[in-house]
Amino acid sequence: MSLRNPLELLVLASSVDDPAARPSAPAADQIEACRRGDRAALEAVFRAHAEPLARLLTRIVGPSVDAEDLLQDTFAAAIPAFRRFRGEASVKTWLHRIAINVAHQHLRRPRHRREVALSDPETVARDAEPTSGPELRELTQRLYRHLGALDAAKRIAFVLYAIEEYTVDEIAVLTGASRAATKSRIFWARRALLRRMRRDPQLAEGERR
């Protein structure tokens, strides 16, 4: 399958992260109600944060996983944890931390470490996730196959850094790791990922500007 001009395809298909669409911070009384386990308050907070959390989860785990399941796991983990929420971080940051933990647990499950030979185009094509076109699907799948070779913690740190564009300090907070550990993870993840990607002839196009 041809991968001519994949970048243009991607640019066309890119979603725009609209800051205006981001959820507003819940009021103090709403947080207090969440701590008490008030279902209406929990639902309101979760619904407000559902979309950014789903986006984060999707970008970490890739196209072949149902983000709705992980989102549900995130909320299920957040409900009892709300009783211990002290408000030191924003609700958004706190929920993102939980989502990252959920994604981490998901990525550590053995079936997600299975490798598919990239030389088997039929396998890749069968495994593709519909997005907006077969070339884009194949490319996305191929890129996530490379990402899938990374250790879960390194993969998450790298995605947060290179895709979500968090700073190292922010990633350290979100993942509960030290700054040094976070920098190390990003470094080794990028190195391993680029080594794999350089060997992939399908990703060699466009090297010359």
Binding site: P6, L7, L10, V11, A13, S14, S15, D17, E51, A54, R55, T58, R59, G62, P63, A67, T131, S132, L136, L139, T140, L143, Y144, H146, L147, V159, A162, I163, R190, L193, L194, M197, R198, L203, E205, G206, E207
Partner: peptide
């Protein structure tokens, strides 16, 4: 090129 490709592919995932 590869890293930007990855970033754009990830941000293009449907949500």
């Amino acid at each position: 090129h590869r890293l930007r490709l990855l970033r754009r592919a990830a941000t293009a995932l449907p949500v």
